[in-house]
């Protein structure tokens, strides 16, 4: 498989308290990759390291086959980036910002830029400092899309925007991806939004990548089981037992959080003399919460 973004043992430190890595990230070419993690888990830092905007302490980064930071200019010609905070000059008008960005990008598509201006209902003569938050978000996405990139790196592109603006921005993004086949690396707290569009998920926690899997296996792999009469010593289960807790129903009922569940594993419970009452599917958000919770708490406590 070829990767649009690949890091090897990437490490970074900020002050005494924040340490990132060693990080081995693999974003498959052509994927829409959702980058999840709680606040402060290192998502933005990772993105900035991948784009050469921060200098790593150790390890390597390759983006679209270019070594970062040594080949960063060649890489940047092919990457559209929407940063967490707007980096645009507030005194420029929207039209001037388009002209400025267009001048830097060889593949700039004037026609696409004009169309998106209409789609997003942005006025060319408005000063950027006077744009609303939603308009600013749309402008950032427009600039990233109009450069026709091979890779889009989006750091919380829709967080804090209203639902109508979010829908417009995502529709424009998907339209571009359908047409171009570009890779998308997107970080967000809006888990349900990522659930719709992503086919890969990476989960960060405390500077480490705790999971990196295709979306369907992430969603199918983690289940909550309701189990009755399980012995204290559960033997050797065929799945990964992430947590085992007392249930809120009748006594003797427990909730097991497991990874790698398959329907054929029901037999295991008969073998240990327990009753499997229910298998609850988790959506991406619940799976994400369970993964973080169980990653932090030692098993069985």
């Amino acid at each position: 498989m070829s990767y649009a973004i690949e890091t090897q043992e990437l490490q970074y430190r900020a002050g005494r308290t924040f340490e990132l890595g060693p990080l081995n990230l693999h974003v498959p070419a052509g994927a829409i990759y959702g980058f999840l993690g709680p606040n402060g888990s290192g998502k933005t830092t990772t993105i900035r390291l991948c784009l050469g905007l921060l200098r790593a302490e150790r390890g390597g980064v390759r983006v679209l086959g270019h070594d970062v930071p040594s080949q960063a200019p060649a890489m940047f010609a092919r990457v559209g980036y929407v940063p967490e905070r707007s980096h645009l000059y507030p005194n420029l008008t929207v039209r001037e910002a388009l002209a400025l960005h267009g001048a830097f990008h060889r593949r700039w598509d004037h026609q696409a830029a004009a169309e998106l201006l209409g789609t997003f209902q942005l006025q060319g003569d408005t000063r950027i400092g006077r744009l609303s938050k939603g308009e600013n978000g749309k402008l950032l996405m427009l600039l990233a899309l109009a450069q026709r990139p091979d890779l889009l790196v989006l750091d919380e592109p829709t967080d804090g925007l209203d639902p109508v603006v979010r829908r417009d921005v995502l529709m424009a993004l998907i339209d571009f991806v359908s047409e171009s086949g570009a890779t998308v690396f997107i970080s967000s707290h809006l888990v349900h939004e990522l659930e719709r569009i992503c086919d890969w998920v990476g989960v960060m926690d405390r500077g480490r990548l705790v999971a990196e899997v295709p979306m369907h296996s992430f969603k199918n792999g983690i289940k909550r089981l309701r189990v009755r009469n399980a012995p204290a010593q559960a033997g050797d289960p065929p799945f990964v037992l992430l947590a085992r807790e007392r249930g809120d129903g009748a006594s003797g009922t427990e909730v097991w959080v497991v990874r790698g569940w398959q329907a054929t594993m029901r037999q295991y419970f008969e073998g240990i003399g327990a009753v499997l009452q229910d298998v609850v599917d988790l959506d991406l958000e619940e799976g994400f919460v369970e993964l973080l919770r169980t990653a932090r708490v030692p098993r069985g406590s």
Binding site: I32, M171, I174, E179, R196
Partner: peptide
């Protein structure tokens, strides 16, 4: 079309 439906549902075109 794949492009239309993906954009309308805001889902991955590959889906």
């Amino acid at each position: 079309s794949v492009r239309q439906l993906a954009a309308r549902l805001r889902i991955n075109p590959a889906t």
